[in-house]
């Protein structure tokens, strides 16, 4: 990153050599770099600088460690569990749906319908989506009513909208389509000839999937899981509209940032945000690597 910093070209003579001219061309990117620095990098760095000082202005890792205490620790656990669960549901159902769509011969429009719908639904989220699930699974919800007509008492069996079950149901609405978008090209990458070769060598369908299909898809599936995990982990609006409690990490950050609380408490919000960035960076980094691997089979 540091090797590409723009101002380093400043000292060169104007247009002296082709090399120098090329360096000057970097200056054309200055507005973009400056903009990004001002509105993305500076805020991100200030989160870290804040979280490295505790409430008494001592430099150290205390504040970052404090983010893992009490209710915040509970929020972390809940967030990780919720994100992992909704990512797992997304990966499994999304892959099955993508496979069903990719291999369907009839009707012809099915595949493009699934692809286009996924493109739209993966973008839904936030307030309207939360409302939709309140209308569906709330105490006065449509599904609650239909189920009770069928003799199933949803709320009697301990269901709540603001639990892992309720939130996973809502998150699945954008997680499954996102997974479809990720795996569809990967499934398209499975070549007919591989299956034929496997069959001609005496392999069953099971052998094909165990020895060829799944290993080829593995990086996409794993990458998809990471992406979906990150997606759920940083989601704020959907959960915010579905619960008044600060259950998950983003909601706790929001709680600290919005609240009229003492400065020491606000610090915790910044520490949590710092952890959020760290976790996202790890997930996205790994995703990036896996995506490169997955692309190997697509040519």
């Amino acid at each position: 990153m540091t090797t590409l910093v723009v101002p380093s070209v400043g000292g060169r003579a104007v247009g002296a050599t082709p090399k120098a001219r090329r360096s000057w061309a970097w200056l054309g990117l200055f507005p973009f770099f400056a903009f990004l620095a001002l509105f993305l990098i500076v805020p991100a760095i200030s989160v870290f600088s804040k979280s490295l000082y505790d409430s008494k202005d001592h430099f150290g890792l205390t504040a970052l460690r404090d983010a893992f205490r009490g209710q915040n620790l509970a929020a972390f656990k809940f967030s990780v569990w919720l994100s992992a669960l909704s990512a797992a549901v997304g990966v499994v159902v999304g892959t099955l749906l993508a496979y069903a769509a990719a291999t369907a011969r009839r009707p012809r429009w099915l595949r493009s319908l699934v692809a286009s719908f996924s493109g739209v639904a993966a973008n839904l989220g936030g307030i309207p989506l939360a409302f939709a699930f309140i209308a569906l699974l709330g105490r006065q919800g449509l599904a609650t009513k239909i189920l009770s007509a069928l003799g199933v008492d949803l709320y009697g069996s301990g269901f709540q909208l603001d639990t892992t079950q309720g939130l996973t149901a809502a998150y699945s609405y954008f997680q499954i389509p996102l997974m479809v978008l990720i795996t569809l090209p990967a499934i398209d990458g499975l070549k007919t000839s591989w299956r034929e070769s496997a069959a001609s060598l005496g392999g069953t369908s099971f052998t094909y999937w165990r020895r060829i299909g799944l290993p080829v898809l593995a990086p996409s599936l794993l990458g998809g899981f990471l992406l979906l995990f990150a997606n759920a982990f940083s989601a704020y609006a959907t959960a915010r509209a579905m619960t008044t409690k600060s259950l998950i990490v983003p909601l706790r950050i929001g709680f600290y940032l919005r609240g009229d609380i003492s400065t020491g408490e606000e610090q915790l919000g910044f520490s949590l945000a710092a952890w959020m960035i760290i976790i996202m960076a790890v997930c996205m980094g790994l995703y990036w690597i896996l995506r490169k691997r997955a692309e190997r089979w697509r040519s």
């Binding site: 704020y236 940032l257 910044f270 959020m276 996202m280």
Partner: peptide, 12 residues
């Protein structure tokens, strides 16, 4: 740097 982290930075 998701929105919730960005807005924390804005608050700083």
């Amino acid at each position: 740097i998701p929105p919730i982290a960005l807005v924390a930075g804005i608050r700083v």
